[in-house]
Measured scan of single mutants.
Amino acid sequence: EAHAAIDTFTKYLDIDEDFATVLVEEGFSTLEELAYVPMKELLEIEGLDEPTVEALRERAKNALATIAQ
Rank of each mutant, 00 (worst) to 15 (best):
A2H: 14
A2N: 13
A2K: 15
H3F: 08
H3K: 15
H3P: 08
A4T: 13
A4Q: 13
A4C: 09
A5S: 11
A5W: 08
I6P: 03
I6K: 08
I6Q: 05
D7I: 08
D7R: 07
T8V: 13
T8A: 14
F9V: 02
T10I: 15
K11M: 07
Y12L: 09
L13G: 01
L13H: 00
D14A: 08
I15P: 01
I15A: 02
D16H: 08
E17R: 15
E17D: 09
D18E: 14
D18L: 11
D18F: 12
F19N: 03
F19P: 00
A20S: 04
A20D: 01
A20P: 00
A20K: 01
T21I: 12
T21S: 11
T21V: 10
T21C: 08
T21K: 15
T21R: 15
V22D: 03
V22E: 05
V22F: 14
L23S: 00
L23M: 03
L23E: 00
V24G: 01
E25L: 15
E25H: 11
E26K: 15
E26G: 15
E26Y: 15
G27I: 02
G27T: 00
G27Q: 02
G27L: 02
F28R: 01
S29M: 15
S29Q: 12
T30Q: 05
T30P: 01
T30Y: 05
L31G: 01
L31C: 02
L31E: 00
L31M: 05
L31S: 00
E32K: 06
E33N: 05
E33H: 09
E33I: 08
A35I: 14
A35R: 03
A35L: 15
A35H: 03
Y36G: 10
Y36R: 10
Y36F: 14
V37Y: 09
V37R: 15
V37I: 11
P38I: 02
P38L: 04
P38Y: 02
K40Y: 12
E41V: 13
E41C: 11
E41Y: 06
L43R: 06
L43D: 02
E44Q: 15
E44L: 14
E44F: 10
E44T: 13
I45F: 04
I45K: 03
I45S: 03
E46T: 14
E46P: 15
G47L: 06
L48I: 11
L48Q: 03
D49W: 05
D49N: 09
D49K: 05
D49F: 06
D49Q: 05
E50K: 13
E50S: 10
P51E: 13
P51I: 12
P51F: 14
T52S: 10
T52K: 10
V53Q: 03
V53I: 11
E54H: 07
E54C: 08
A55K: 13
A55G: 10
A55Q: 12
A55C: 09
L56M: 07
L56K: 00
L56E: 00
R57Q: 15
R57C: 05
R57D: 01
E58H: 06
E58S: 06
R59M: 10
A60D: 00
K61I: 13
K61V: 08
K61F: 05
N62P: 01
N62E: 13
A63I: 08
A63N: 02
A63E: 03
A63W: 01
A63L: 04
L64E: 02
L64S: 03
A65S: 11
A65P: 03
T66K: 12
T66C: 09
T66S: 10
I67D: 06
I67S: 05
I67W: 00
I67F: 02
I67R: 06
A68P: 08
A68R: 11
A68Q: 13
A68M: 08
Q69L: 04
